[in-house]
């Protein structure tokens, strides 16, 4: 059961990150200096993983949201979803 809850929390985080990075208003044009363009976070998650340097950093980030943290951490998302 605990494993199931952890899995669902990780799924929720992935779902949120997918929104932030691949959805939302896109401002094209010469007014835009840059825009992150990482489509398909489900596949591109490795990009995020490389920036998660320590478990502490990961826990700080998740503590800000309603997502909750998982001791298993982000790799669980990968193993369950990719």
């Amino acid at each position: 059961m605990t494993e199931m809850v952890a899995r669902e929390k990780n799924v929720a985080l992935l779902d949120l990150l997918d929104r932030i990075v691949t959805k939302g208003v896109v401002v094209y044009g010469d007014v835009t200096l840059s825009v992150a363009d990482v489509d398909l976070i489900y596949l591109g998650l490795k990009v995020l993983l490389t920036s998660v340097e320590t478990a502490d950093q990961w826990k700080r980030a998740t503590a800000e949201g309603r997502i909750g943290s998982s001791e298993a951490g982000l790799p669980v998302v990968l193993s369950h979803l990719l």
Partner: peptide
């Protein structure tokens, strides 16, 4: 609210007002 995609940078207030 219309959320804007992560990572969007614009030059300054003037171009944003035009936009």
């Amino acid at each position: 609210t219309l959320p804007v995609r992560f990572g969007t940078l614009v030059r300054d207030e003037a171009v944003l007002a035009d936009l």
